[in-house]
Design a binder for these strands. Sequence first.
RNA 1: CGGGGUGUAGCUCAGUAUGGUUAGAGUACCUGGUUUGGGACCAGGGGGCCGAAGGUUCGAGUCCUUUCACCCCGACCA
Length: 531
Amino acid sequence: MRRSRAFIPTTKESPSDAVLASHIYLARAGFVTQVSAGLYNFLPLGKRVLTKIQNIVNEEMERAGAQEVDLSFVTPSELWEESGRLNKFGKELLRFKDRKNNDFVLGPTHEEMMVNLVKNRITSYKQLPINLYQIKTKFRDEARPRFGLMRGREFLMKDAYSFHATTEDLNREFETMEATYKRILERLDLDFRIVEADSGAIGGSGSKELMVIADSGEDTIAVCSKCEYGANVETATRGIRKDTTELKNYNSVRSVVKRLHFEEEDKIVLFFLRACDELQEVKAVNSLGALDISDLEEAELEKLGLTDESLAPLNLENIEYVFDRALQEAEDLNNIDLSTLNEPLYYDIYSVQEGDACPECSAPMTFTKGIEVGHIFKLGTTYSKALKAEFLNEKGQGTPFEMGTYGMGISRLVASVIEQNHDEKGCVWTKETAPYMVNIMVSNIKDEEQMALGEKLYTQFQDAGVEVVLDDRKDRFGFKMKDAELIGFPYTLIIGKELVNGNVQIFERATCDKEESSVETVYETLIGKIS
RNA sequence: CGGGGUGUAGCUCAGUAUGGUUAGAGUACCUGGUUUGGGACCAGGGGGCCGAAGGUUCGAGUCCUUUCACCCCGACCA
């Protein structure tokens, strides 16, 4: 591409609403522009990066035996009614009517559509397993879109759905997908962790998130300092505490009162934990299978006599009691006797704290922030049952599909790469994500020798299949360098004042080092660096 | 959805407390010239429904009412 012809509108100043590095630099360097809250245009550079990531995903999915499809973006509401998610999804689901007054939604995820596609087409266990995926624009009408591409309303996501005859086979595919995701993120050169996660409202059993490590991440994850263990704090567990004597309030109990919301009703619940622990709200919600959790009003607390900090009484009416599992084995709890209760409910409801022992190897765990770029989980038969999608097993019996689902945020990955790879000058693209690998910068285009060499090398690289830009603009050296640094080409070949001595320079973006090279050898040298 | 903030040139922002020439700067853009190793300089030029609607006034970017959009904190987020 000739820079003089390229549509790459770079700016010196960043848009006033950009906060994250990825948002600032992607906007300043002309990769994306904002259209409206959570909506972005991808310009030529941004589109190239998107395509690169898509290609990697496609290659790895193909390798894992998955097949690509492309389902319609606009989906009829009936399917969502059948699965019961029309109400569950709430306002995030954008609904509208067509001219014939039929109800439709814009797909925020495609479980319903994918099940519907397979239903009555895959009819025998002999046709299983199968893994279908697409890379497709999704729309979720987020209450508060933010962080540029990180939390947009419209975004590009790869979503895969696998169908199996048995849970054993689902487990096998789940592992294959985990390995596939690992390969993808490794190829993208990202620092990441695969962590245990909450399954959320979609339902299902096993669930893992792929977290790109970054301070700007919206999730907090607990990771082991020694082994591979990592988990979202929403679900993280810990090993046995050794130095309990050091823990303040280890042998006393505290209570936390919350309101749990269920589909039909609300319940007031008292949660009991060791006084040194905090309640983990997601675990609390899951303990009784609720939909949501909230605090009580002051007046309500007063009415129940739960205003002071002391332990709540154990005999209130119309209130559920849930105890943390750690209390089950507790011997001495400062004379509080829980054995008077009949059949107390014990669940894992504590929140892991920094420094707690890893459940796998007992080494201390640390907290870090992560960007959720992927989420894989085992759905089981939740959707196949709801949508009556069945196949015939060996005995000729109708059986709902065992399903798995595997999502990966493509546009979010673009932003993640920059969150991890940038400096105060701009973007630093990795080899697999760079929109162009080499930028040939002619310092002074009026210098015929410089320009001739630029043209020659440009053709040479193009012929070799290298993605190359020729900066042939009538601008000064400093301006063009700043521009190249902002965009983040991995290598800029500088043809300038050293040419009279037969030399050019190779500027490496990641290190900002300039390396002298002779005109004769520079092509070979650069080819060596990029391959 | 609760709390706060901002809408003026492509972009970043002055101007609004106290209404009054033709609405400004920087940057970007166009023309000519100079310059050519770190976002150059000189001269000239184009570009605005001052978010929208209504009102007060002789007169509104500025005051009043309504409304829309965007951003931040929180709630929410398969």
